[in-house]
Amino acid sequence: MPMKWVLHWHPNTGTTVNSQILNEISLCVECINGVKEGRWKAVLTFYRPILRDQALAAEFPRDFLGLSLPEEPNKYYFILRGQRIVLEADSSIQVIMDKLQSYKSRVSLNFEGTQYRLGDFQVRVGKVVPSHSENMRGIVMEVEYLPISSTEKCRQIMAEFVDILQEALSKRSLPGQFMHIEPNFAEYGLLDHYTSQHTAIQYATVMAQLIATVQQVQPMRN
């Protein structure tokens, strides 16, 4: 499958994300001839263990994530970042997790927005919001280069394309910028050929960055 980068919006110190910034980013993509293709939505779920003795919570992972992706509607992904594990499963694994009653969903976040096409690139811009809420927690952008599946071969052309996007965005004087952190896919046992498991790891990485950003902002508010 085509190589993809998942980027997150890093707000300038003292600022937060809002729908105005998201609108400006969308307009910017349209200004560089991005053609709207429709909507997209991914759902990331935080799981926590169901414990009989809370004192033993340290024995169980606290960073257990589940992810559904629009490009693989019949699949579901589990990620344990701390232990560098990503698992691809049929979506029925969610039914099995419900039946096992060992972990339960703590919170789900929707990554949703608009999909654009720019030549050989597909760009998705969207907000991060908790399910059942409109309180925006972050902004993400997926950039996919459709002709190539190799993470290595694609790196330069992806970087050049993202530079063009960043430059166009910089003209709008927005309070922040997109950041791309490429995880070490080899640590998860993944190869150079890009798969949806690579995407799942990128989502987990972006989520960790969004949490870190919120934790940086909150002490300042206090």
Binding site: F64, Q83, I85, A89, S92, I96
Partner: peptide, 17 residues
């Protein structure tokens, strides 16, 4: 209930307890 999973399933479930 059945779900096909990638080959590292055993490692994941060990990590989950």
């Amino acid at each position: 209930a059945e779900s096909r999973v990638s080959k590292n399933a055993l490692r994941l479930f060990y990590a989950l307890g």
